[in-house]
Amino acid sequence: MWLLALLVQRTEQNKQDADLLERIQRKDQQALALLYDRYAPVLYPLAVRIVATREDAEEILQEVFLQVWEKASAYIPDRGSVYSWIVAMCRHRAIDRLRSKGHKKKSKETDLEPSQSVLHATSDSDPHDLIVMKGYAESVRSALKSLSRLEVKILELSYYEGCSQSEIAKMLKMPLGTVKTKMRKGIQKLRQAVGKDEV
């Protein structure tokens, strides 16, 4: 029931986001401002986590919302929610910057310990979002608890560091097949958190 309530809230939020995107297509700046207020507190830490500098993260955040402003029509609802579309854009831009020549990240963890970032979650955007996001963050955290440290580490290296499966295999000194299996399993468990998987 609790998961169902979360899904209902999330569906309502998706609908609101889709409405905002429609208004953005009609060049409504207020709609963009609302979308920004809603998701900047999630996207900004994501960019900081990937590129490690606040200046770069701020630049990425602006680029993401400029892209939303200019390319709102590129959103394909069949490929996921507006939220997941924006998060993917932010991550890709941050990873591109990370890979770009001359960008040096402060540190790169290669041991098997997941970073502390996955172990806590707080929310500070508006209340409606918070209740939804908070519930989701809790679901993700509980899903992450069911993942082995290795599975979390592989997902982190892939998601935050932009490493390929072969690079992870080399880094963690394990067969490529194991990395692929662990990654698939990890994602499958994460999917359970969104309540849309048949596992």
């Binding site: 701020e58 929310s123 969104v194």
Partner: peptide, 21 residues
């Protein structure tokens, strides 16, 4: 793809949220 995007989009929710300047 939709399922994967949704699942991975949850990952940043585990980070401490922060309002940019």
């Amino acid at each position: 793809l939709a399922r994967l995007n949704e699942a991975l989009a949850l990952f940043p929710l585990t980070l401490k949220q922060e309002q940019p300047h």
